[in-house]
């Protein structure tokens, strides 16, 4: 049986299994650590950095940090929240995030995080990069304007043999997500919906379906992101 250890998150004593990731341990104890690239059930990557906490005085990503006895964690502090806000703002200026026209608006995790921190406008200048909208696949449309490169689609959407439907191509600022041409032929409607769901933003959209939920009933219209975690106490 796994050993139970004690960690302190913002001064609150939390019990969790030794070796568990800090993010999971916090959520089990009703403490929400915001995430974007993390997806339940998929190996964490730690690429978006939003879950960064101060662990024993050092900045660590909660999704990739295993807990250990006596860990002192700062999560919901002014310093950490300010840093998280800055990261969210960088996402907004780096892409072309036109919320009013986006099919994912209201269900978008990036937008929900911005709502949580009540970001009125980014402090950085908008870059307006030129990005492609790829509509060559039969089941999905990939809008690179909205992609935040979390790699959730690459990591989570696989066929029965464990092969990824999606992949990265190019490097650096030219990096983008592509759907494998041959794999795209075997992508069915359910898989397309799954891919849309896995995408935290509106970069992957299943074809022939959009705006199904009326305004006011969407995921983050009434309740902030993470409120379901904070309820467990």
């Amino acid at each position: 049986m796994a050993e139970i250890v004690r960690v302190y998150i913002d001064g609150k004593e939390c019990l969790a299994q030794n070796g568990e990731y800090l993010l999971q341990a916090a959520r089990e104890n009703g403490i929400y650590i915001p995430t974007l690239c993390h997806y339940e059930g998929v190996k964490p990557k730690g690429s978006c950095r939003i879950c960064t906490c101060k662990v024993n005085g050092r900045l660590m990503t909660a999704c990739t940090t295993p807990i250990a006895e006596g860990m002192v964690v700062e999560n919901n502090t002014a310093e950490i929240n300010e840093m998280r806000k800055a990261i969210i703002e960088l996402f907004f200026v780096e892409g072309n995030h036109f919320c009013p026209t986006c099919e994912k608006s209201g269900d978008c995790e990036l937008q929900a995080l911005a709502y949580k921190y009540q970001i009125t406008a980014p402090r950085y200048p908008f870059l307006f990069p030129t990005k492609r909208v790829v509509a060559e696949y039969s089941r999905i449309i990939i809008d690179h304007n909205r992609c935040v490169l979390c790699k959730r689609c690459v990591r989570a959407i696989k066929d029965a043999e464990g092969r990824s439907f999606f992949a990265y191509r190019r490097r650096g600022q030219h990096i983008e997500v592509i759907l494998d041409k041959r794999m795209s032929e075997q992508m069915d409607y359910e898989k397309a919906l799954e891919a849309e769901k896995v995408c935290p933003v509106g970069a992957i959209m299943a074809r022939r379906i959009a705006f199904t939920t009326p305004v006011g009933h969407r995921k983050y219209d009434k309740k902030p992101i993470g409120s379901d975690v904070e309820k467990i106490k």
Partner: peptide, 18 residues
């Protein structure tokens, strides 16, 4: 005070920026 998405980030007209 910048009011609305267009004043803040260009909004729908800015979709021509690409």
């Amino acid at each position: 005070v910048a009011v609305g998405e267009c004043a803040i980030m260009g909004g729908l007209p800015a979709m021509r920026n690409g």
